[in-house]
Every structure is written in C-alpha cells, then in structure tokens.
Design a binder for these strands. Structure first.
Length: 420
DNA sequence: CGAGATTCATGTGAAGTATACCTTTAGGCTTAA
DNA sequence: AAGCCTAAAGGTATACTTCACATGAATCTCGTA
C-alpha cells in the first residue's frame, strides 16, 4: 500500500496532467494481468464445497442439530478449538446445508450468526440483542431502551410461529470476559417463556479452558454437547491449501514449494488454516502488485510480514482517540527507555496527560486509563501483569512484544492521526 | 535475626454524572366534514 | 371532531468520574536469642 502511494506521488510531481492516465494504467494492469482466477476462494469468509479433515466434526455437529428438522429443539452445543481450526467454517457450512434441507421440508428455521468480538457491535448484552433482533429483520435503537424490553421484543419476534432458532455466538469467550456470563444464562432461560418457538445456542470459543470459567448453571446448559476441534498438522494444511489454490489461481502461478512453506508457517502457529490461506492470498496480491506472474518463496515471507503489520495497524487505527493517546504514550515511553523493557501505569498516565495537553484534548482520570490499559491487554496489543513492588506500591507491569519496525510504524500512524 | 506491622502506588468495586438517544404523552395546530 | 405534529417528560445504555477500600511484597520495627 505504502509502496503504491509512493509511486503515485512521484508521478504526481512529474506531471500532474498525467495523473488520470497513471491511475488508468494501474487499473488496467490490475484487470488484465491478474493471476487470480477467483480470489474469493482464499478469503476468510468463503465456504468451500468440502472441508478436508473435518469430516468427523461435521458429522457430529450435523447429528446434534439435526432434530431441528423435525422441529425439535437441538441440544445446546459448545465448540472449542484454537483459531483457524475451522470451527466457524464448519458451523457456517452446516448452517447452509441445514437451510437447504429445511426449505425442502418446509420447516421454519432461523439461524442468526453473531460475532461477539466486534467492538462497538456486539460487546455488551444490549448490543448483542440489538444485533440479534437486527438479524431477524427488525430495527431497534442502538441505545435508550431497557434491556429486558429487548428480550421481550426478541421473544415476541421468534415466538410468532412454531420454529426453531439456532443462535450461533462466535468468539463467545470474548463477550463473557467482558460482560460476564449472565447474558448466557438469560438466553438459555428464554426457552421457558417460549410457547411456539424453541431456541438453542451454539457457542464457539477459541479459549480451550473457557467452559471451566463459567457459572455452573450456565456451563451445564450451554455445554449439553461439546466438540473439540483439533489443530491441523502441516500435511493437512497442505491439502487444504492445494484444494483452494487450484481454483483460486490461474494455472502455473505457484512455484515449487510455496504451498509447503505456507503450511509450514501456519503449522508453527498451532495449525491456523486461516493464517495459511491469508499468507497465500496476500502473497498473490503482492505478486500482482509488482506485475509478476509467479508466486515465489520470498513472497511468502513478505506476505507474512505484511499480515502481522496489517493486523496490528488495523487494530490501532480503529481505536477511539483516548485509546490511541494511551497507546501512543505507552509506545513513546518504551522508545524512551528501551533498556528497561517494562513500564508502569503511573508513568504512562503522566505521559498521557502530557500528550493530552499537547493535543489540547480533555484528559481522562487515572481510573479510566487503568481500564483502557487493561483493555489493551485483553486485545493482546500489550502485555500487562499486575505486580506488587512491595514498599513501592502496586501497579501493572507492562511489556510490549512488538518488533521495532512495527513499533515505529504504529508510532507514526498515531502521531499522524492525532495531529501531533 | 525474624515475625509481624507498615507503607506505597495503584488495582478495583460501587455509585454517581453527563450525554445521547428512545418512547410516551399531552397540547396545539391543521384539516375536512 | 379527527388527525397529525411537536415538545416536554420520563426512561435507558454507555463512557466516564468520584469515592473508598483492597492488595501484597519490600521495608521497617522491635522483641528476642
């Protein structure tokens, strides 16, 4: 991205009248020389026809929710496994199949899918309900209504006729971590108030120990059935990649060993298939951007770097202003005293106050900043631990395990977006 | 020298406040008979 | 008189503040060996 911008600038300086021409050229080269046959196939939300090495899990899930086709309530299901092990994919796949079948048999099924991780979309009980009702085709305000009224609306909405609702809650551990497990209890209890419809819940979690942290009541009802998704090994990853690459790229685009390398990288990170596919896709995009016709091994490395950078950059970019200021304070402090490698809340807060003064921004209290730091920790941007320094008090010890070049990038990004 | 008290800097919980937004309601205005 | 619009009243969620108390190991204190 940066590279492209740089080129544009240069052209711009050379001859402003040529600008549209140049853009045209860029577009042209994109259209003509694509090495992709169907890039969608490599994208994260694509559901392929077959899912290799997940036959057993598919069968299990299908067996568990099959009763819905007879309008019987399926057991609640809890699915867990590390990221990129195909949990969401399998569930989506079965959801589609189930829909087809339900249509044929004239059974009324509703299967809303909600990702609880999305900040500002579904990270409170209220917002999850808003999202849920929205999926059912009804608009509700983003604020202002009592939560239990949302429950009532939801209830009435699905109870209008005899039907089964299978609620899919992805990244459920994130939501519970943030807002507690009470909403799950409420959801599981809805059934007792439903006369026509029935609801069951599919919870998906990346956290293997998540179920243990739940309130026993919730645990027993949510975990009526449990399925573990094991990680893929390198060989399985290769098969997955090969299957998808076959249709995604035009022939003769991949050099020898590209797939193996992608698979090896992903296998090293607990067999994350999504990661492997991203690697392949990004590598392809990079190749295309450089007007080459062949994905070579070194592009995989480039793609790997780009993914890591992009992921964090995106996370940083989308933060609210106060969060950005806090993060900037953390990063600047780290750059200042590199040798120490750890900093404390108090230092951050002071520096943060200074930054606020510089940007003429209202500053938040330390109480709030403390919570913000805790949130960054949860998001995995920083690494914080509450420690006691004995006589010298108690604080969070914050570490930042990011490569320096990335650090600088974020730094610049923040400085830019905050107008410093 | 060691057990227990003290201390510091901030974590953390609860309650309160400001803001933005929602629904309800009542009054006022328009309209059409 | 019926219908519609508007503004006020009363309510909620969320982000933040204020207040108050909790934490936990380094350090201090003081009695004892």
């Amino acid at each position: 991205m940066n590279k492209k911008r740089g080129q544009n600038n240069k052209n711009n300086e050379n001859n402003k009248n040529n600008l549209t021409n140049n853009i045209d050229q860029i577009f042209d080269s994109f259209i003509k020389q694509t090495i992709f046959q169907n890039k969608l196939i490599l994208q994260g939300n694509y559901t392929p026809e077959t899912i290799p090495h997940r036959e057993k899990q598919i069968a299990q899930v299908a067996a568990i929710i099959a009763p819905s086709l007879r309008l019987e309530r399926p057991s609640n299901l809890f699915i867990y496994g590390l990221t990129g092990t195909g949990k969401t994919l399998v569930v989506q796949y079965i959801k589609n199949q189930l829909f087809k079948r339900a249509e044929k048999q004239n059974v009324s099924l509703i299967i809303p899918y909600i990702n609880c991780k999305l900040k500002k979309v579904a990270d409170t009980e209220y917002r999850i309900l808003v999202e849920l009702i929205g999926k059912l085709g009804e608009k509700v305000p983003a604020t202002g209504l009592p939560t239990d009224q949302l429950y009532h609306r939801f209830l009435n909405l699905i109870n209008r006729k005899k039907q089964i609702v299978i609620l899919i809650l992805d990244e459920i551990d994130q939501a519970v971590k943030k807002i507690g497990d009470e909403f799950l209890y409420n959801l599981t209890r809805i059934n007792t108030e439903l006369t026509n419809a029935q609801i069951s819940i599919i919870g998906i979690s990346n956290d293997l120990k998540f179920l243990d942290t739940l309130d026993p009541r919730v645990r027993s009802s949510l975990g009526e059935e449990e399925i573990l998704f094991p990680t893929y090994n390198a060989l399985q990853l290769q098969k997955i990649l090969r299957d998808r690459a076959k249709d995604a790229f035009k022939p003769n685009i991949l050099s020898e060993g590209v797939i193996a390398k992608c698979a090896a990288y992903a296998a090293r990170e607990h067999g994350d298939a999504r990661r492997a596919l991203d690697l392949l896709r990004i590598a392809g995009e990079l190749v295309e951007r450089n007007n080459k016709r062949k994905i070579t091994l070194d592009y995989i490395d480039k793609a790997k770097q780009k993914i890591e950078v992009d992921k964090i950059i995106l996370a940083v970019e989308t933060q609210p202003k106060q969060f950005q200021l806090t993060l900037l304070a953390i990063i600047e402090l780290f750059k200042k005293n590199k040798e120490k490698n750890k900093i404390f809340t108090g230092d951050i807060y002071n520096f943060y106050r200074e930054l606020c003064k510089r940007t003429r921004t209202e500053y938040l209290t330390q109480r709030r900043v403390s919570d913000i730091i805790a949130e960054f920790d949860m998001q995995g941007v920083i690494n914080a631990k509450v420690i006691s320094k004995g006589r010298y008090g108690r604080t969070r010890e914050i570490r930042l395990d990011l490569p320096t070049n990335l650090l600088d990038k974020i730094n610049h990004l923040l400085v830019d977006s905050l107008n410093l």
